[in-house]
Amino acid sequence: MRQVFSKMRQIYAVSWMLTKRTLVIEVRTSRLGWLWPLMYPVAYTVLFLTLKPVMQPTGSSGFDYALHVFVGLSLWQLWFEGLQTQMRAVKAQRSLLSRADLDPGALFLSGFFVQAVYLLPRLGLALVLAATFGSLNSIWSAFIFVSMSLAVVLNGSVIGFVLQPFSTLVPDIGRLIQSLSLALMLTGGIFVVFPQDMNENTLTLLALNPLGPLVDTARSQLLVQAPHFEWAPWVWSGITVMSLAVQIRLSRKVLPVLLERLGG
């Protein structure tokens, strides 16, 4: 047991060092640094607000719609970037992996930590806006919002982690995910507002995209509205955690195969 804890401590320490390395590199090589996590969601929120009368004339508007889009885009971007980071992790860190006994779990964790750090300013802005304009009504809602947001980021990272062996060896998989991104955004309700009285069958279909239930549940806490999905967010959270536990074990066996086929 002691060895297991010691190993977990080492994995955590290494993953944190890798996270700091990534963040330090970002800060040193970018003038805008910490503004970048906010620029994408803020800029596109303004754009969607401007285009709303044309794209979706009915439904909520003003602050509610802005918050809806801002939270959706923030979580979408981190979900998608987390997924891609994990899919490319072995190729990107090949040099390091071939020189040190880097546990794949540490590699996964560092990718997730980086996304979680980028999540902080977005969550902060969303919470401040929601609290200021009165839609956030309790600490418990804020807690659920933050937890579900982390679940979204974790879900994207885990999916990328599971796909990692296949995307490393079959580059077409990465391109396929890229080409499906718009479909994922639309069916995930990232900037589309789903009506409250949706058909059960439609909801079940939409629940197959993990983004939909998870983002919807997170967002509903800030907008004080009933979430569309009842059980789907918790099922997806459970699948995420179980997949992570299994994949960490499998990735240790598979990593040498990936490094071998990548060559160098």
Binding site: S95, L102, A106
Partner: peptide, 28 residues
């Protein structure tokens, strides 16, 4: 310990000291 392609595997943006710290921690 492996003395293979010694000049590779360093993060170019980090300093020598930071790279050493990272590699040493990764080696346990």
């Amino acid at each position: 310990e492996k003395m293979i392609e010694l000049s590779g595997g360093f993060s170019p943006v980090l300093t020598g000291r930071e790279n050493v710290a990272l590699r040493a921690r990764m080696l346990g």
